[in-house]
Design a protein around this nucleic acid. Sequence first.
DNA 1: CCGTATCCACAACGATACTG
DNA 2: CAGTATCGTTGTGGATACGG
Lengths: 156, 156
Amino acid sequence: MTLTLDGRLAPLNWSPENCSIRRTLDLLGPASSILILREALYGTRRFDQFAERLGMSETSIAARLKQLTQAGVLERQQYREPGSRPRDEYVLTQRGEDLAPTLLALMQWGDCYLQEGPAPLHLVDAAGEPVRVAFQRADGTTVAPEELHLRSAQDL
Amino acid sequence: MTLTLDGRLAPLNWSPENCSIRRTLDLLGPASSILILREALYGTRRFDQFAERLGMSETSIAARLKQLTQAGVLERQQYREPGSRPRDEYVLTQRGEDLAPTLLALMQWGDCYLQEGPAPLHLVDAAGEPVRVAFQRADGTTVAPEELHLRSAQDL
DNA sequence: CCGTATCCACAACGATACTG
DNA sequence: CAGTATCGTTGTGGATACGG
């Protein structure tokens, strides 16, 4: 596969700076931000749980949580356990949840190419059937990678 | 959505270090590696083209290309234009092409949340119909994000 | 429990100059 | 054209100590 950009390698109306991939990576920040989001997707919400599960220093955790909150993919929520004072926790916003395909596509690739033995986690549906990240049309039909093309907007 | 890990937030048989997302990020390296791969996916192959299109220094380009080659997602290929001496170019391996869902999921998210106005590039099939990254079962049927679960391997 | 402040180490990057 | 060598700057992170 090579996404042929409709046959041209450098369309005039597309510039490498005006690129959603670059802007998304800039917004999310370093790789440790992705790991924070992975934990958030798994259900981790509290500061010390992030720190413990990721094996990162509190300094880094605080910086990443603040950055991701400002980026709008996490938000602080107050909660109160009975008998305790109110605390904050960090939960995914809709924007953050929508990063799930990206994260799970990464996981899928690593499971395929970097995992020795069976993968530790499997993505399944409500009935336990395996689920994969794939390309599909609006009607839900699958698109093979060889059929993919990138079209620049002004070609329409 | 929260991927409930079958109801438990920290399954005993899964550790944050043994994680395909982390290992994949470690293998690929810094964010600029992802941008290199984006260019490779678009069809860029030659050293100076990477440097020019990404606006990065030759030092960084050389380091990233070497790293990605060692990681097995790019490989050097000799080519020879008529009348020129042979040169090297960097092309995606199968491993590298299989990162397309990850990169395009990133692009899709950025198009949705960071793009002002219409996206500059559209992912389409051979007939020009729009294509998205989505979750699906082995039989091709679509899975809604709310239906997703992560199951640890030893629960089988 | 949930962070912040300070200090230090290292990795990534751009700029520049240089080689086959 | 396709890199390598060196330098200086910045960003990221760990360790430690400290504050609400």
